[in-house]
Design a protein around this nucleic acid. Structure first.
Length: 659
RNA sequence: GCCGGUAUAGCUCAGCUGGUAGAGCAACUGAUUUGUAAUCAGUGGGUCGGGGGUUCAAGUCCCUCUGCCGGCACCA
């Protein structure tokens, strides 16, 4: 038998007979490692202890101490244990796939009857039995025909499909957890008793399409989470509870920011507090854009279908548009049948995006190459008929306002404009408290318009721009629009969710369709490029992210209610009016709380309401012309003179770009 | 859009196998003038999401529509 050389993490190499398994390697190193081993890395691949190694390789033996492989095995084996439990309880259930997810796993099933939330308890109980049984996990490689025949016999059509998807030459592995058998690429633990029976939880049932294919019947997905021990599970469940407390939908109600209702699904009714955040943010963006060389415009909401036909949206995007039909004969308010016969209905659509309207502005008058780059910005209110299942608070809505702009420029100006925009966006994000963001670079898709030379040039411009400003990017090959590449900018919020906010798209197509042109130096008319870009994305989503990021405790300058001046005794009322007036004159959003309540009550109420500063005023403050300041979330208080307090708070109320 | 769940007072929720609705907080009224996360007492408040059906009787059972929640799909 031939020998192979295995190199360990410490750099030492040892000879072993070919076909040795990691289990045997671990045993050869020491009996205790042989007992503790759960899997291995072989040339970087996660390797089952039972798989033979046939060639020279770098090897590392993993134990439960190694978090990443341990968690992967735990979650993966739980997926199988759950599928086995389900099939033991409901033998008519067909199994499909069950991959590991970020905190656990899911497994999709095909069963006529829906799983109920109550069923989850029964499944969990059965899973614990399987763990307690300490059933061995074993594996074999089968040939394709045998595997297919097996799954035909056992009436598991999804597994047959899966085998068809396994590329020629790749091993088809069968695993057994006790007597229960599944097709799986592995690796796995050695027996079910290695699973922590007190560190998993089934989280729910939902629908899911087989490989995302909406034309197929829906499967039922059961999701679970699993950790190495009970404490980690508890920590995760606590984290979920905390996340729920900072949910913008909950805080939106508690802080009286906005509401939504049935008659306008996916659209926001902003209350005074919420609208204060919105306008403060908008004022900020307006100043930033002006400083960044943008000119602000405003364009119509309701636009005749003719424009959408010209832009291509009518053909490609109609299902997402709110269509408005207007009978123009209504003008005369007549009942005259003859007039009604002549009635003409006109079909309009609410704009789902601003770009076609911006081209109309560009097209007015004659543009020269000297006008380029021309940067037209609009806080553009858009309406999109998003599918009902996509709606989510104010993060995914049907009516929203973008901090949109379109830059009309020449091909040679794209790189410079892209770099400028990335710096602009980075500055905005930094000032808004998001110094870190991710750029995803989406390149040419299969179906596209334009020559390869043109794509080469434009993609190169974007890549150079990213490099020029010293940023990294994640490449998303083939994800660009059919007319040009794009950059998307992603923020991660305080609970780890990733949101797309900013975008930068290169578009030679729409200027072409809508006949935009400029006069070039040689006197010829040429097509400009159009760059679609947004930094915040939409005010609605961005405010939702801000709320969740800060658990409602917004930075002082953005807080809708900045200071409450609360009386301890009613003799302080006159002085409090004076304080409030002084703060307001200095640009601070201040209000008085003169109610006949104890200071404890007021402090609690305004703390719950996330007011960043409370000034408590009693006899002492009146006499000394001071204020006692208490910051949100802090127990300590500090005494300041009135002038000091106004100066300090006024400074804090100043937006970051004006400091 | 699809699968599942869900809808009771302003909010959070209770209401068992059908017998015409309750609590806490909030609101309102009164008393209390109070020193940093809930002062006390009293009062009012709900066609139980909409529509239809079964039944002597429906918040409760059935159908349907709508919204919301969790996923899937979508987010050129």
């Amino acid at each position: 038998m031939s020998q192979i050389s295995l190199t360990f993490p410490d750099g030492n190499a040892r000879e072993f007979p070919a076909g040795i398994t990691p289990a045997e390697v671990a045993q050869a190193i020491s009996t205790s490692l042989g007992k503790k081993a759960i899997s291995a890395s072989v040339d970087g691949a996660h390797w089952d202890l039972a798989w033979p190694i046939d060639t020279d390789a770098a090897i590392a033996i993993h134990t439960m101490q190694d978090d990443a492989p341990a968690l992967e095995l735990i979650r993966h084996d739980f997926a199988h244990v759950m599928a086995r439990a389900v099939q033991e309880i409901w033998p008519d259930t067909k199994v499909t796939i069950g991959p590991v997810t970020e905190k656990g796993w899911f497994y999709d099933f095909d069963r006529a009857e829906p799983f109920t939330p109550e069923d989850l308890g029964a499944i969990e109980a059965k899973m614990k039995e399987i763990v307690a049984a300490r059933d061995p996990v074993t594996t074999e490689v089968w040939d394709r025909d045998r595997a297919i025949a097996h799954y035909r016999d056992t009436n598991e059509p999804y597994k047959v499909e899966l085998i068809d998807r396994i590329p020629e030459g790749a091993p088809i592995r069968m695993y057994w957890h006790g007597d229960w058998q599944d097709l799986c690429r592995g690796p796995h633990l050695q027996h079910t008793g290695q699973l922590p029976a007190d560190a998993f939880k089934l989280m729910g049932v939902s629908g899911a399409y087989w490989f995302g294919d909406t034309s197929r019947p829906m499967l039922q997905r059961i999701q679970g989470v699993a950790f190495k021990n009970r404490n980690d599970l508890k920590a995760h469940l606590t984290f979920l509870e905390e996340a729920a407390k900072r949910d913008h939908r909950r805080l939106g109600r508690e802080m009286d920011l906005f509401h939504m209702q049935e008659e306008a699904p996916g659209q926001v009714f902003w209350h005074p507090n919420g609208w204060t955040i919105y306008t403060t943010l908008q004022d900020y963006m307006r100043r930033k854009q002006r400083a960044g060389g943008y000119q602000e415009i405003n364009t119509p909401q309701v636009v005749d279908r003719k424009l959408w036909e010209a832009s291509g949206h009518w053909e490609k995007y109609q299902h997402h548009m709110f269509i408005v039909e207007v009978d123009e004969s209504r003008d005369g308010e007549t009942d005259d049948a003859a007039v009604k016969d002549k009635a003409q209905t006109r079909i309009n659509a609410l704009k789902p995006m601003n770009c076609p309207c911006h081209v109309q502005v560009f097209n007015q008058g004659l543009k020269s190459y000297r006008d380029l780059p021309l940067r037209l910005a609009e806080f553009g209110s858009c309406a999109r008929f998003e599918p009902s299942g996509a709606l989510h608070g104010i993060m995914r809505v049907r009516g929203f306002t973008q901090d949109d702009a379109h830059i009309f420029c020449t091909e040679d100006q794209i790189q410079e404009e892209c770099a400028r925009f990335i710096e602009f966006l980075a500055g905005v994000y930094r000032e808004l408290g998001f110094p870190d963001f991710e750029i995803r670079f989406a390149t040419r898709p299969e179906k596209r318009v334009g020559s390869d030379e043109s794509w080469d040039h434009v993609e190169g411009a974007l890549e150079n721009a990213i490099k020029a400003v010293g940023r990294d990017y994640v490449l998303e090959p083939g994800d660009g629009a059919f007319y040009g590449p794009k950059l998307d900018f992603y923020l991660t919020d305080a609970i780890g969710r990733v949101w797309q906010c900013g975008t930068f798209q290169v578009d030679p197509n729409l200027p072409e369709r809508l006949g935009a042109s400029y006069v070039a130096p040689d006197g010829d008319k040429k097509r400009p490029f159009m760059l679609h870009r947004a930094a915040l994305g939409s005010f609605e989503r961005f405010i939702g992210i801000l709320i969740e990021e800060h658990s409602g405790k917004l930075p002082f300058w953005l807080a809708p209610r900045q200071v409450v001046v609360a009386s301890i005794v009613s003799e302080a009322d006159d002085y409090i009016h004076e304080i409030v007036a002084a703060l307001r004159a200095a640009g601070v959003r201040a209000e008085a709380d003169l109610r006949n309540e104890k200071i404890n009550y007021k402090v609690r109420e305004h703390s719950v309401g996330k007011v960043p500063a409370i000034l408590a005023i009693g006899h002492r403050e009146v006499e000394e012309r001071t204020v006692t300041l208490r910051r949100l979330g802090e127990k300590a208080t500090s005494v300041l003179s009135l002038d000091e307090a106004v100066a300090t708070l006024a400074r804090e109320a100043t937006p970051p770009d004006l400091l």
